[in-house]
Write a protein that binds this DNA or RNA. Structure first.
Lengths: 97, 97
DNA sequence: TATAAAATTCGATAATTCTAGAATTATAGT
DNA sequence: ACTATAATTCTAGAATTATCGAATTTTATA
């Protein structure tokens, strides 16, 4: 994960609504949750939520699987791990050096 | 560190310039670096840099110490640790549960 | 006290992001 | 075919953010 990718991903998590969505999805686990589930849980208008989900998917924070009419959103744990890995390296570089 | 604080901090790191600044400061270590040093290193116009630094300081990612004419910027390692801690909890919640 | 240096603030513009209602698309069931 | 459901796309206004030159503030030094 390079610099620009990290910045883009952090920017996506750096929005209150999107952070809420991501937290909800992580709680939901590997099976994820449908857009409708998220909408009912967080009370975000559908078009607004759709906008946020599209952004999150674009940078790889979540993936979306379509099952007939329903779209399931699943958090990309690996992506977050890499993000945390990057931050940890940044964080410890000064302490170690 | 609560939800809104986390979102605000991630949003600040989610900008390419500010992420570069933070990475540079972490490399610089606990003594930090002056605004001028950052400016020369990253080549960001002074007024733009000042704007970004003010934002980073506001959310607690860095602190600024004034020594006569020079302002030293120091990364708040503890703040980043807390940020990482929050993300790690989010990340592992689904895997563990 | 004039000059230079370090950094911020001001001011103005461009660009992006957020928000959400209305319309649309896709699919399932009757 | 008709109706309902799930979700997106369209559209447009509001708000925020990014950018940076010019002016200003603060402090050191000749």
């Amino acid at each position: 994960m390079d610099h620009e990718n990290v910045a883009a991903s952090l920017a996506e998590l750096g929005n209150s609504h999107r952070l809420s969505v991501f937290r909800f999805l992580v709680k939901a686990g590997h099976e994820g949750a449908s857009v409708g589930d998220i909408q009912r849980e967080l009370g975000i208008p559908a078009s607004t939520l759709s906008h946020h989900l599209a952004r999150m998917a674009k940078v790889g924070l979540i993936r979306q699987e379509k099952h007939s009419r329903t779209i399931i959103c699943i958090p990309e744990y690996e992506h977050l791990e890499q993000l945390i890995g990057f931050l940890r390296e940044e964080c410890c570089a000064g302490v170690a050096g």
